[in-house]
Amino acid sequence: MNHAARAAALILAGMTAACASGPPPSTGLAAADPHATVIDGQLWIYPTGGKGGLSLSAWSTADRTHWVKRGELIHQDRIGWIDDDGAPRHHLWAPAVITAGGHWYLYYSVGPQNPTPSRIGVAVADRPEGPFIDSGRPLLTGGNGFEAIDPMVYRDPRDGTHYLYAGGSDGSTLRVFVLKPDMVTIAREVAVDQPPNFTEGAFMHERNGTYYLSYSHGKWNGPSYSVHYATAPSPTGPWRYRGVILEGDARRQGPGHHSFVRDPASGDWLIVYHRWERPPGPGPYKGARRIAVERIAYGSDGAILPVRMTDVSP
């Protein structure tokens, strides 16, 4: 999306729960683009939302009912290169986190996209709550029809390779890279086919030897926003399109920009995503998006069964 629309979304994501209508979703958090992970038996979420896009924060829960804010991860004023593009203002969104070699790595989008290219940064910390120290340079810069946003880093359990997935709205192009062991440098790009209906927000997980690439499709603030997926025998394809996982219903619209995580209690897979608490209708939607959690079920052939949105955390 263009930088004005993205900036507005970041501001709206930080608004209070009173801004939304309808019943509370399964977390109650007014935020967006959640990257979920399990740390010491608790579910942590790293979302968009913080001081109108000036910073990023994390939340954790032991019961998915009571959430604890873990503080500020990073602020724009601690990113030394952020003003190098000459844009008058910037915003941070769509973070992702991973641990490797005893450190934590935070990847994040830096806008605007227009008139200057968007960028992806990476910062390092000794603890999952930070503070994170920026690496000192952009990891990836957009341009030429590619929007460098929505980073996701995945470690292949087969050989330990770390892959960076990135790309989004402007051009709707997915690119995949191999990271060097330092986790802050790109080793090489891997050529991949474009998955059908890809718009942004790629996420990778593996189950029983099958790799699941899931992603958002459609306009972020309209009724077309939804989650689709494809499967592959490797983290880089070839993709077999499998269909829609999440789409709007009579009470909620625009589910998307999600992550998959294992339930720390049962081991079941969960999908953590954001949505608009409103009935169907044309966009653009306004107000706060909310984070919700649903349980995932798989068919005998490994297919992800379509998810029915609920208001109670599984």
Rank of each mutant, 00 (worst) to 15 (best):
P279D: 08
V184M: 12
G111C: 10
G209I: 06
H3A: 07
Y273L: 08
E247F: 09
A187Y: 06
A9V: 01
A292K: 04
W220T: 07
V38K: 09
D77K: 12
P157N: 03
W67Y: 15
L43W: 07
L92R: 01
P280C: 07
T161E: 07
L106A: 07
E200R: 02
Y285W: 10
W81L: 03
G248A: 14
G145Y: 06
N197F: 13
A94C: 06
I45M: 08
E277C: 12
P128R: 09
I79Y: 02
E72I: 15
G101F: 10
A303E: 10
K286Y: 08
Y225A: 05
D126Q: 10
P181Y: 08
P235M: 13
P131A: 13
V110G: 00
A297P: 00
L139Y: 05
P24V: 11
L43T: 11
R278F: 14
H35R: 13
P255R: 10
R155W: 03
R295Q: 05
C19H: 14
L106K: 04
G102K: 13
Y225V: 03
M152K: 06
E200I: 01
G142M: 08
R78G: 02
V176T: 11
P128F: 07
A31Y: 11
G52Y: 04
R64E: 10
T27K: 13
T173R: 12
A30E: 08
S118H: 10
G143K: 02
V307L: 07
M309C: 05
G302L: 09
S55T: 03
G80I: 00
P238S: 11
T48A: 15
G53H: 05
V97Y: 00
L43E: 03
A94V: 04
V312W: 12
D126K: 09
V307N: 07
Y108T: 01
T210C: 03
C19M: 12
G80R: 05
K180P: 00
L270G: 00
A202R: 02
N208D: 12
P25S: 04
K180R: 15
L140D: 03
V293P: 02
S135A: 15
T141Y: 13
P157Y: 05
P88I: 07
V122T: 06
D77C: 02
E277V: 02
W93Y: 08
P95E: 06
H103L: 12
R251G: 00
R89A: 13
T16D: 15
A100L: 05
G302P: 03
K180F: 04
V124Q: 09
R262G: 02
W104V: 00
A288C: 15
Y215M: 07
V68C: 05
S169M: 12
D126H: 10
Y215A: 02
G49D: 10
T185N: 15
H205D: 04
D63T: 06
T116N: 10
P223W: 09
P279A: 08
K286R: 11
R240L: 14
P157W: 06
W67T: 01
Y298T: 01
T236Q: 04
M204F: 06
Q42A: 14
A125P: 01
G136P: 01
E129K: 04
L164D: 03
A62Q: 11
T173E: 08
R240P: 01
P88V: 05
